[in-house]
Design a protein around this nucleic acid. Structure first.
Length: 595
RNA sequence: GGGGGUGUAGCUCAGUUGGUUAGAGCGCUAGCCUGUCACGCUAGAGGCCGAGGGUUCGAGUCCCUUCACCCUCGCCA
């Protein structure tokens, strides 16, 4: 070992010891007679002082040091002179008086300094990711990630889970997201698919009798990126045999409490609250509601039937819904122009036809360009229903249920942030349960699986598969942290009859089922235990636990929104020989552009 | 594929109704300084104003096209 201590380690009790530190030059302050170096590693910073007693040779050498040089310093730990200790530094009581300075490596002038206060643009950070990862904040995030994963692994190990790795090179299944494909050299024209999740393998492991499986699994989905979505991401994937929903939820409750305590130092009261999907959609318009604040959706469809306002009336009579939110005390914050902007937002992004609004005035009267279409009594009822107080802003969307959900959910979320309706440090955990088995696919008018085609219906809903599939609820559950989906799972179908029935509803005929999932159907026929599991989005846990608003900060080497890596410049063109071996020809018009 | 934002010195940004020589702070280079810790002081270097085209006597500024990055809808658990 070159070093005897780290740069975050030395304290007053080390005074007098001979030590060797290694690290990066964080900053240097040359005072002519004496020269101060802050030496940094991932553990902290220690001040090195090249005074006259360190000798002209060392001073000379120290004078050549620049930002991010890598050095080793051997010397004696000394107390800082009276009045020069630095309480902002953990090692601020001491300094090292070097006898020897070794420059282990020089550095070019970095495009940005890891210690700088102002963050450079993200593309620059991504290009020089090794410099960005030197930043203490970024290192703290990677450490947080490590602690979360370590906690998860320990937890599942203590509960008798077996860590089993599943293949990265698998078979494409057209369900779900777009696959990342890997061409086969040996079988020209055939492709592997990178896993979207180890879903089918973990079911097979249950059939194989492993009983409790866990894996920190990399997953790949070739879809467009978002602030909380990367094309490759990491799940804590687990599966158990002989369990029902409550068993999985109860176990994960324990994991949440443990990690909240271990990582955040927060006590979480168990059991975590649960809400049904239907209730979440009614009260918040979304299946992952942010429960840190109120502003719940209010339904006035019944009142809308009594008005002369055509938009409301026609929507209510036509089977749509009229719902709204009360933005408490916000009437003054939003001018006509501000409301126009909100209106454009819901129309542009969520295909809402408009946004109706009322400002609540003294005496709870509702003021609005459309107020004349409402009788005073009706306005009173609306005020009553929305618990309106003077100064409130009421916003309503009249449309199909789904549209009202999306628009009002987005508005609520936006107001929650803009009006700071919650403490950003709060961590709110909850479960959303009893998801529908199926959702209508808008284009094909067929049923589509809400989760995946192996999700089991609730036992009491089995008859509904035949009579009214839309009402059939699944044994599915999502873990929600601060309005973000942090995990989701289901109990799987282990009965081939039920599986066939579900495939039938999804429009997958027996031949197709065999073609796509034959191996799973075969396996299910050889003594499949009842089983179910869950997958937790580790990157999102890190985001939420770390209070970060961006998934890229949680991943050591993330991709940009166009799924490129600015450091390695992946994806890149390949050698024609490689393509020949794979039996692949690129169409001339689509040859890779030089980036 | 649609909507929005950003792009000016190595970095973070300012740049007036279009006006001739494009600025600041940090960083960098050199010098001075024995107690600094975002050290200080002095001097200096550093610009294809993302790229291409257009309007104009004149463009960092206006118009068109395009590229990169970010947010978002669609897409995706």
């Amino acid at each position: 070992m070159i070093r005897s201590h780290t740069c975050g380690e030395l304290r007053a009790e080390n005074i007098g010891q001979e030590v060797t530190l290694c690290g990066w030059v964080d900053s240097y302050r040359d005072h002519g007679g004496g020269l101060f170096i802050d030496l940094r590693d991932r553990y902290g910073k220690t001040q090195i002082v090249f005074g006259p007693e360190s000798g002209p040779e060392n001073q000379e050498s120290a004078r050549t040091l620049r930002s991010e040089f890598v050095v080793a310093v051997a010397g004696k730990v000394a107390h800082r002179p009276e009045g020069t200790t630095n309480p902002r530094l953990a090692t601020g009581e001491i300094e090292v008086h070097p006898q020897r300075l070794m420059i282990l490596n020089k550095s070019l002038t970095p495009p940005f300094q890891p210690g700088a206060k102002e963050l450079p643009n993200e593309d620059l950070r991504l290009k020089y990711r090794y410099l960005d990862l030197r930043r203490p904040e970024q290192q703290a995030t990677m450490l947080l990630r490590h602690r979360i994963i370590r906690g998860m692994r320990a937890f599942f190990d203590e509960h008798d889970f077996v860590d089993v790795e599943t293949p990265m090179l698998g078979r494409s299944t057209p369900e779900g997201a777009r696959d990342y494909l890997v061409p086969s050299r040996i079988h020209h024209g055939s492709f592997y698919a990178l896993p979207q999740s180890p879903q089918l393998y973990k079911q097979i492991l249950m059939i194989a009798g492993y009983d409790r499986y866990v894996q920190v699994a990399r997953c790949f989905r070739d879809e467009d990126l978002r602030a909380d979505r990367q094309p490759e991401f990491t799940q804590l994937d687990m599966e158990m045999s002989f369990v029902d929903s409550d068993d999985i939820i109860g176990l994960i409750d324990g994991l949440v409490a443990r990690l909240a305590k271990e990582v955040l130092g927060q006590e979480v009261k168990l059991p975590l609250p649960r809400m049904t999907y239907d209730e979440a959609m009614e009260r918040f318009g979304h299946d992952a509601p942010d429960l840190r604040f109120g502003m719940e959706l209010v339904d006035i469809t019944d009142l809308a039937k009594e008005t002369d306002f055509r938009v409301f009336r026609a929507t209510a009579d036509g089977g749509g819904r009229v719902r709204g939110i009360n933005v408490k005390g916000a009437a003054a914050n939003y001018s006509r122009k501000g409301i126009d902007e909100l209106t454009n937002y819901v129309m542009q992004d969520f295909a809402a036809k408009g946004l109706a609004w009322f400002k609540v005035e003294e005496g709870r009267t509702l003021a609005s360009p459309i107020a004349k279409n409402f009788s005073p009594a009706l306005l009173g009822k609306i005020a009553e229903r929305t618990a309106a107080q003077p100064g409130d802003l009421l916003l309503f969307v009249a449309d199909q249920f789904e549209v009202t959900c999306k628009a009002l959910y987005a508005l609520r979320k936006r107001f929650g942030e803009e009006l700071k309706l919650y403490d950003p440090n709060t961590k709110n955990f909850s479960w959303i349960v009893e998801f529908p088995m199926f959702a209508r696919d808008e284009e094909s008018h067929c049923w589509a699986a809400m989760h995946h085609p192996f999700t089991a219906p609730r036992p009491q809903d089995l008859p509904l598969l035949a009579s009214d599939p839309g009402k059939c609820r699944a044994q599915a559950y999502d873990l929600v942290i601060n309005g973000s989906e942090a995990g989701g799972g289901t109990i799987r179908i282990h009965d081939p009859q039920v599986q066939q029935q579900v495939f039938g509803l999804l429009g997958i005929d027996p031949a197709q089922a065999r073609e796509r999932f034959g191996f799973l159907l075969d396996a299910l026929a050889y003594g499949a235990p009842p089983h179910g599991g869950i997958a937790l989005g580790i990157d999102r846990w890190v985001m939420l636990f770390g209070g970060l608003d961006n998934i890229r900060d949680c991943i050591a080497f993330p991709k940009t929104q166009k799924a490129t890596d600015l450091m390695t410049e992946a994806p890149g063109p390949v050698d024609p020989q490689q393509l020949r071996e794979l039996g692949i020809q690129i169409r001339a018009s689509e040859a890779p552009s030089r980036r």
